[in-house]
Write a protein that binds this DNA or RNA. Structure first.
Lengths: 337, 337
DNA sequence: TGGGAATGCGCAATCGTTTGCCTATTTTTT
DNA sequence: AAAAAATAGGCAAACGATTGCGCATTCCCA
């Protein structure tokens, strides 16, 4: 068992030809005659030869590996996104390295560093909730490692990204509530860093404006995504003299916590208070009281598109620095449950 | 930007010393004097030198990469397991490559092949539901790539594995139901391939026997894990003259489908029929009608232990073939909701 | 039949690092 | 003060594959 793996050299020796001939023969290089080519291939098959990829990686300065950095694998959104990425990666004969930041920028930096060391050819990233500056990603440029952000994309101009347009569906979501007769609609936003260009909020404002509902800033609360913080945020909304009858919530996970808490407080869901959120996670299917609607963000597609963009970058021979930054924006869709 | 990365050679030239000296200096080799060592390190820092890992991987015949093969990232169980693995991998300065089989053996083979090509140092795997033979894993031995299975482990002797003992907690689960007064208890199992040594079923039998409840084989049904199949299985149970008042179910996802379907059928959960299952996924927290109990299988720990075992194997200098196969079995725990 | 294309293949450098072995200088020992 | 030993560092091979260049044959056509 402890046998050394056969190399190109081994084949060459057995056939008494040079290793360059073997290499070329295996690659169907035209300068190698048919008979030797056949002989080489036959011998390669016999010996069960497989090229040593690490040698090739080294020589070619390419590893056929892309790195994915994201906050958390456990969120359905991200695991779906990975599926999209994996599909495209496979088509391109690439393999994926995964690192979770667990929403911590230090982890993010460490992972990036490790991936750089491993010489990944490119990186796909969804930033952590406390990533406010991007030097670590910026730095990848000097190593000629392209980075494409998806979903949680930094709000700076000079990056490639794929994300969802949440502005329109946020308007749609709020209008959906308004049409249901709601007049006092709260908004529970996520960590402020996650939405510098806060499309959700902008849509919220726009919808209210469109329907001539005055904005009450105290109806806008924040959660850091933890259960506790969400509960506090909801408390704050419920503590108002004029309580909201509906709340637009940052995402389904937060909504689940909010709904759970509201029910503990003996509120009747969809009677006393309704929730609409984002992500459209599949588990809501099993719930008796899911958000009445949720904005589908098509994680699989986002992942796939981001991967496609990355491979486009990897394919370009020209100086990558010259490629204009591309910011793909996908449509989202309000799904009513 | 297009600058070439500095190499050890670059440093050597600037300092007018040999590259071997540079290499040794950077590794604090004792045969290099203090002054040159300092000079080298200073220059390395100045040039922002970073060793080319691909060269090192190649030379060392090691990639500091392990591959994880599992059915599906979207199951919380597996993403938690990955967390455990990632933690241990990080401690060992390893990085993880991930591939999903999507419960298809062909994918599993393809992934394994790719990982082999990429020369991973070792592999952690949870087999797909239709993997009944293991040649592809077996083959890794001849490449000296150790494989450790976790959770879904093959039922053959000569493998390393980490799994949960479901026998005892299955007994516990059934006894829990018996103590609640249930006399007719069904069992819905998963794909037969996933449990050749079917501990769940064995525990089910044992508990009944212990409490002198005769086994009714028609109370044992199977699902391929799809919603449809689960519904059919439940139908079969409900079609009996003597319907079960409780069902032990393969896992929470199946249980969720079963409960959902039972409710559609107007059954009162925990009144007409109760469910106990496995996995203890966190979302049940938000459900009005979760399984009344679920067997926690500690995916994080399983992942971590499997990774530890793998690193132990990777650390051994001796011929790896000589290491006795290790089969770690962790305790599971019935969690009552 | 002689000279210029094709055709078929080998040499050797290269990628960046590590490491066994050897040499030269300095230090220690007796 | 000469021999032995320790110290410091260089040479070159090796890891496995790719590739530009050059050197033989063989072939074709005049």
């Amino acid at each position: 068992m402890e046998k050394k793996l056969p190399t190109i050299k081994e084949i060459a020796q057995r056939l008494n030809i040079s290793i360059s001939t073997v290499s070329r023969a295996l690659h169907d290089h035209p300068s190698i005659g048919l008979r030797t080519r056949m002989a080489v291939k036959k011998m390669a098959a016999e010996l069960n030869y497989e090229p040593n990829q690490t040698a090739i990686f080294f020589k070619q300065r390419k590893t056929f590996t892309i790195g994915i950095i994201l906050p958390n694998l456990r969120e359905e959104f991200f695991s779906s996104a990975i599926n999209g990425i994996e599909t495209i990666a496979q088509q391109n004969n690439y393999i994926v390295l995964i690192g979770q930041s667990h929403d911590d920028i230090e982890n993010e930096k460490r992972i990036l560093e490790t991936m750089k060391k491993h010489r990944v050819d490119g990186i796909l990233a969804s930033i952590s909730k406390n990533t406010t500056q991007f030097d670590h990603f910026e730095q990848m440029k000097s190593y000629d490692i392209p980075v494409v952000f998806f979903d949680r994309v930094p709000d700076v101009p000079d990056v490639h990204s794929v994300s969802c347009n949440l502005y329109h569906s946020s308007i749609e979501a709020v209008e959906f509530l308004i049409n249901k007769g709601h007049k006092t609609i709260g908004y529970m936003q996520g960590p402020s860093t996650l939405g510098i260009k806060n499309e959700r909020l902008a849509g919220y404002y726009e919808a209210l404006k469109k329907h001539k509902i005055p904005v009450d800033e105290s109806l806008i609360v924040s959660t850091d995504l933890s259960t506790k913080s969400t509960e506090e945020a909801l408390d704050s909304l419920l503590g108002k003299k004029k309580k909201p009858t509906a709340v637009l919530v940052f995402n389904d996970y937060v909504a689940l916590d909010a709904i759970h808490y509201a029910r503990q407080k003996k509120l009747k869901i969809d009677k006393d208070i309704s929730f609409v959120s984002y992500a459209n996670v599949s588990v809501t299917r099993y719930l008796d009281y899911p958000p009445i609607a949720s904005v589908e963000q098509f994680p699989y597609d986002q992942g796939a598109r981001a991967a496609e963009l990355l491979f486009k970058l990897l394919d370009t021979k020209t100086n990558r620095q010259d490629i204009p930054y591309e910011n793909v924006v996908l449509k989202s869709e309000l799904i009513v449950h």
